[in-house]
Design a protein around this nucleic acid. Structure first.
Lengths: 165, 165
DNA sequence: TCGGGGCTGAGATCTGTTCTCAACCATGAT
DNA sequence: ATCATGGTTGAGAACAGATCTCAGCCCCGA
């Protein structure tokens, strides 16, 4: 949050109430929010902020490298704060929509190795693994062994958890 | 191509001229094509195919696991054939738009390891590394040492190459 | 306190993708 | 070869996410 303040100051951009509220919302949520999620969240707090402003502020946060733009193939983008956090990747359950972050240094290592081998310079990466979380796999196995067909519901709310609980 | 034919037959779906032409276009190009790219390509061959049909056929090819949907954050999707090909990942030059495919078993190994650790079942993945290709990096270095500012142009045509030339 | 440049927001606009539906055609049977 | 039929096709409408417009507002340095 302070980082955002100093970024704005350094860029000679004013810190408005909207910018503050948007960054706080994303910061406190800690999840991967869509623009609509964020608008709803703020509305629930009695703060009305136009979508145009949300888009503009998110793009500022991305420029400041305080946030990251994500796309899980849902047809719209999600954003998450990454202030000072270690570079992490995502595992997305295709059944319930649960997103799990993970951090593994081996990813950075093979990324560097591959770039060196190909003669490239790395700027960023996207690693997303799609599959079934343990609960959904269990549900699928139960259903198939019972001969029934039941699928978990896609969670539009985008529940998140870091690995290890 | 024959795989597509047999997939259609097996699904009791007719093989139309449009489907044949679209699959052939994607097959012969070997690149990551957008729907517009494909429409242009076919128009250049004197084949007029509606976009709705292109979208429908691509989605069939994806279902048949003969093609893969890609999103390089350009605001639209790209598609590439992956008939029988090894699972590969992409390196995208953010300056000139060049896409390089690469295959590294370490990526598959890591994917299996992390899934096991987290208790997940893998279905698919997306690994994209963004950065500068060697030519663009050289251009940037040249420009900055000369004090000038020049950037490569984003290639909308999406040139591709596999690693090793 | 003031002046001005940047910000805001409702709605228009743009663009990629999907939907609609009447005409068309691939397929299997005769 | 001809026929019936059910899925396909394509032009354009519809939709949704993201961006743009511009008049009015607000932050901030003086």
């Amino acid at each position: 949050m302070d980082l955002f303040r100093s970024y704005l100051h350094q860029q000679r951009l004013p810190l408005t109430r909207q910018r503050e509220v948007i960054a706080m919302g994303l910061f406190e949520s800690g999840e991967q929010l869509s623009v609509d999620d964020l608008a709803d969240l703020l509305r629930g707090r009695g703060e009305h902020v136009g979508k145009a402003t949300i888009y503009r502020t998110l793009s500022l946060l991305v420029q400041a490298e305080l946030a990251r733009e994500l796309d899980f193939g849902e047809g719209f983008k999600r954003y998450e704060l990454q202030a000072g956090e270690a570079r992490h990747d995502h595992f997305i359950c295709t059944s319930c929509g649960q997103v799990t972050r993970f951090v593994r240094s081996v990813v950075d290592e093979f990324q560097a190795t591959i770039a060196a081998e190909l003669g490239y310079t790395v700027q960023s990466r996207r690693l997303e693994i799609y599959g079934l979380c343990s609960e959904c796999r269990a549900a699928v196995e139960r259903a198939s062994s019972a001969g029934a067909v039941t699928t978990g519901e896609a969670a539009s709310s985008g529940q998140v958890r870091g690995e290890g609980g």
